[in-house]
């Protein structure tokens, strides 16, 4: 099922399919390892509900919901 990364709950995993952001942000996210086919796990949300902490490859990355919304992932069951 294709969903936006911001819709995943902590513990859920998605596989990056597409990023619907402008060139600059898309490149930045790709440089940080968010390429098509990458497995991304949502670890937690910040105490105030935003931003999100993700596990990307071997490290942890934080994005705001706004940016996470631009990332379409295939949810892993």
């Amino acid at each position: 099922m294709m969903v936006r990364l911001s819709e995943l709950r902590p513990g859920q995993v998605g596989i990056v399919q597409r990023i619907e952001a402008d060139d600059a942000l898309r490149l930045r996210l790709m440089e940080m390892g968010l390429l098509r086919g990458e497995r991304v796990r949502v670890l937690k949300y910040a105490p105030l509900g935003d931003p999100i902490e993700l596990e990307v490859g071997l490290y942890h990355l934080s994005l705001r919901r706004r940016e996470a919304e631009t990332i379409l992932v295939e949810m892993e069951p």
Binding site: R28, P51, L61, S62, E67
Partner: peptide, 9 residues
């Protein structure tokens, strides 16, 4: 600017 922040160990 978007927040793209590494959370190091």
């Amino acid at each position: 600017p978007p927040l793209v922040l590494e959370l190091p160990a």
